[in-house]
């Protein structure tokens, strides 16, 4: 099926259409600027049974696990609230046996996405991993977590990880056009790999911009339009995490979340207040302003620090020079057509 050229829609529509129960779901963002509104909407719609991929879990993973949406987790890092005496939704689910986890290192996890993104069946990883329990202790992936092969060139043992090609990636970026050309800058992490390894891509952005802006800065585009399935404009879409050039991390909301996440009951209350009782991001922001005043958000707004524009200019953008002559042959159109006629190259 051919995708529509314009992909702008609402978050509920995008999640409804492109996220299915039991999907391999990947969070595209890494540590920063995570796709909070998409995570919230998945929870609101009660989607479940996911195998969740996360390079580094923060409140995104905690919320999806606390909502009971995740059966299996592939990750390298999970957050924990309140140090040793605290807790996390991931820890609680592991203890209860409702969640299985497969641990990788940052590089190993990212290598699976790189293989998936480029269409390879596996990627070579660093052999030192064989000395660790990441290699030795395996969960649901079993033998396929890592496999060792002989390098045909050196004869040495090479450790590999299998490609990951998740069903759907949810990701937040700074800006995109209505066609789905998505631009992201800052800490690149594994954001492009997570998106491009996936079969479907749902992206939220702080702003939808004119295509001319995208075309004058293609070096910032991490997802080309033909790979995107849904584009949703969601200002403050990553709050309480930060988005470079838009807003800083909200330490107040982080603090409230950290305190809540230590126990399931308090985390459930947090979710009731901020996820379920807020129909969309606008309602969430309205509720936030109502509770804490608008001053808090204003303090987080980034002061601009613009990148120097890259000069994409050229000496000319027409084959025809100012005298109407083709730059390569030095001939006018009339002269070219006469020449073609003269040489007997034109046919009726």
């Amino acid at each position: 099926m051919t995708k529509p050229i314009e992909k702008v829609m609402s978050a509920p529509e995008a999640i409804e259409r492109f996220v299915k129960d039991g999907d391999h779901l990947i969070i595209g963002n890494y540590t920063v600027g995570t796709c909070m509104e998409l995570v919230f909407e998945i929870i609101r719609q009660g989607k479940q049974g996911f195998t969740l991929y996360s390079q580094s879990g923060i409140l995104d993973v905690e919320l999806l696990v606390a909502a009971g949406a995740v059966e299996k987790l592939v990750t390298t890092y999970v957050m924990r609230s309140g140090g040793r005496s605290g807790g996390s939704a991931v820890e609680r689910a592991l203890k209860e046996g409702s969640l299985q986890i497969e641990d990788y290192t940052n590089y190993n996890y990212n290598a699976r996405l790189m293989a998936g993104m480029h269409g390879f069946s596996f990627m070579q990883v660093f052999e030192g991993i064989m000395a660790t329990d990441l290699f030795k202790k395996r969960s649901f992936m079993g033998e396929d977590k890592y496999r060792v092969i002989k390098c045909p060139y050196t004869g040495k043992d090479v450790v590999t990880v299998p490609a990951a090609t998740p069903d759907v990636c949810i990701v937040h970026v700074q800006r995109a056009d209505k066609f789905g050309n998505a631009q992201y800058w800052g800490a690149i992490g594994s954001v492009p790999a997570a998106a491009l390894a996936s079969k479907r891509i749902i992206l939220t952005c702080e702003e939808i911009v004119d295509t001319g802006i995208i075309r004058s800065s293609p070096h910032h585009t991490i997802i080309p339009a033909f790979r995107a399935d849904a584009v949703i404009e969601v200002p403050w879409g990553a709050h309480p995490t930060e988005v470079v050039g838009h807003y800083n991390q909200d330490k107040l909301m982080w603090g409230l979340f950290i305190m809540a996440a230590a126990r399931q009951e308090s985390l459930q209350e947090w979710m009731d207040e901020w996820v379920f009782n807020c129909r969309d991001r606008q309602a969430y922001i309205d509720h936030y302003v109502e509770r804490f005043g608008s001053g808090w958000l204003q303090k987080l707004v980034a002061k601009p620090f613009y990148s120097a524009p890259a000069n994409y200019g050229s000496a000319f953008l027409s084959t025809w020079d100012e005298h109407g002559k083709d730059r390569g042959t030095g001939l006018t159109m009339e002269e070219i057509e006469n020449l073609l006629e003269e040489r007997g190259l034109l046919h009726d």
């Binding site: 890092y77 999970v78 996390s88 592991l94 940052n106 202790k137």
Partner: peptide, 19 residues
């Protein structure tokens, strides 16, 4: 590991870097 008393963050990049 499979049913931990305490789940710590994990490797992140640690195992790769110390290697």
């Amino acid at each position: 590991y499979y049913k931990p008393d305490l789940r710590l963050p994990g490797s992140g990049g640690a195992a790769d870097f110390i290697s």
